[in-house]
Nucleic acid binder design. Structure first.
Length: 271
DNA sequence: AGTGGCTCCTGAGCGC
DNA sequence: TGCGCTCAGGAGCCAC
């Protein structure tokens, strides 16, 4: 599932191929996934793309006339570039046609969402305005981290997944960050000592950085804009490794549910 | 205000 | 071989 490293990888790719392109048309088989409506896209017809940015797990495409096209891939969304329509891609739900290039939104589960807004509205329209800090924002130091998370209720995992606290962490990187920091996902956040909070802070950045370096984690769903898989799945310690041996201590990786999400951890390495 | 649970959706994997 | 069940899950929504 696309989280910060996957969405950043896609955003970087899109910047290279789409910047300066003119929007021509849109086609979709899931009009309900498009806000406010397909009709709204007449406002960007013939308009050029200035830039593309990621915020949390959202991708926003900025047009020259102050319109913003925002896409959230949710669970199974992919954005694939092709030179001709459809290009043999499975589960294409929406196609954006630009001059000389197609942007295909493939999405098996149809959870993905697309918004077109005026620039003054797009953060509220999409939910971006409710996002917490970016993990790679320079303000996100250890003090900031303890300030937003230290007094929260509930499990550590639940709070890591809360997009209104820190934006961009999903199930994979939460589980990996918790392994790196040696903390059980179900631990009450208030029970964490200062040194554990520091380990967690470092674990978050370490897992996300590793994902970025490897161009994302690909199990079945994630591919970059050329359809190529990331390689981060080869570096994971717990996510997707239930029943296998811990790479650190060789005990069996446990799978449970925490905060309603499938959660993998090592009962020896994580306390 | 905060929280837990449900919902959207489809395919993979499994047991029988 | 094939059917039916369960699971996967980001985020919005609702009831409490």
């Amino acid at each position: 599932m696309p989280e910060l490293p996957e969405v950043q990888t896609i955003t970087d790719d899109l910047n290279k191929v789409l910047t300066g392109k003119k929007f021509l048309s849109i086609e979709t088989e899931v009009p309900d996934s498009i806000y406010p409506s397909m009709d709204f896209f007449k406002y960007i017809k013939g308009k050029k793309i200035l830039s593309i940015k990621r915020r949390g797990k959202y991708i926003s495409i900025f047009f020259e006339n102050d319109f913003v096209l925002t896409i959230h891939l949710r669970m199974s969304g992919r954005l694939l570039i092709s030179r001709d329509s459809y290009g043999g891609i499975n589960y294409v739900r929406t196609v954006f046609k630009f001059d000389g290039i197609y942007l295909n939104f493939a999405d098996m589960r149809k959870f993905g969402r697309i918004w077109l807004s005026r620039s003054e509205d797009y953060e509220n329209d999409t939910g971006i305005s409710g996002l917490g800090i970016e993990p790679f924002d320079e303000k996100f130091n250890f003090e900031y981290f303890t300030g937003i998370i230290g007094q929260k209720k509930g499990s550590v995992k639940k709070n890591l997944l809360d997009q209104s606290l820190i934006a961009g962490i999903g199930n994979i990187y939460a589980d990996e960050a918790l392994f790196y920091s040696g903390i059980l996902p179900s631990r009450e956040i208030k029970s964490l000592k200062k040194n554990e909070l520091l380990s967690l802070y470092n674990g978050i950045l370490k897992s996300l950085n590793q994902g970025l370096r490897n161009r994302g984690t690909s199990f079945s769903d994630f591919h970059d804009t050329r359809g190529k898989k990331g390689t981060n799945q080869e570096t994971l310690f717990v996510y997707g490794r239930a029943g296998k041996k811990c790479l650190n201590c060789e005990s069996q990786i446990i799978k449970t549910k925490v905060a309603g999400r499938g959660t993998a951890f090592c009962q020896i390495c994580q306390k």
